[in-house]
């Protein structure tokens, strides 16, 4: 309960950054923070009290495992997050080379 609320506060902090910051790099950092909090939320939901890691070895026949499905999903999400972050960074450095600033309010020359 407390952990869910804290996790959501982390999401809100990331969203606050995305909305109010002017620096492109800070906006990308805010997006990454939101993604981290989502990953954490998935794993928190799948946790079972006194569970063991979902790896079958000797001695784990009677034990309860934590849910392996959210972990498999989050593993995919983490790798995709790296790809999108790299792509956002490429766009940011491209815009910096053209406009010589990271300020999104000065980059307003988008014409159709």
């Amino acid at each position: 309960m407390t952990l869910f609320v804290l996790c959501f506060i982390l999401f809100l902090v990331g969203m606050y950054g995305v909305i109010t910051r002017r620096n492109m790099i800070k906006i990308i950092l805010g997006l990454c923070i939101m993604e981290y909090s989502l990953n954490l939320f998935f794993v928190l939901i799948g946790y079972v009290k006194n569970g063991v890691a979902p790896i079958i070895t000797k001695g784990t026949e009677q034990a309860t495992f934590v849910d392996p499905l959210p972990q498999a999903m989050v593993l995919t999400v983490i790798v995709i997050g790296l790809a999108t972050t790299a792509m956002l960074m490429a766009i940011a450095i491209r815009l910096y080379r053209k406009h010589n600033t990271f300020d999104i309010r000065e980059i307003n020359t988008l014409k159709g």
Binding site: C32, N39, V52, Q71, L75, I78, L82, T85, M89
Partner: peptide, 28 residues
Amino acid sequence: LKAPDLAIVQLVVEIITLIIMIAVIRNS
């Protein structure tokens, strides 16, 4: 939270992300 695979992947991804970001802002 008993997710060792995620910890390993997150560690690697985090380091790569930091390297990419520092490379982007190094000359800016």
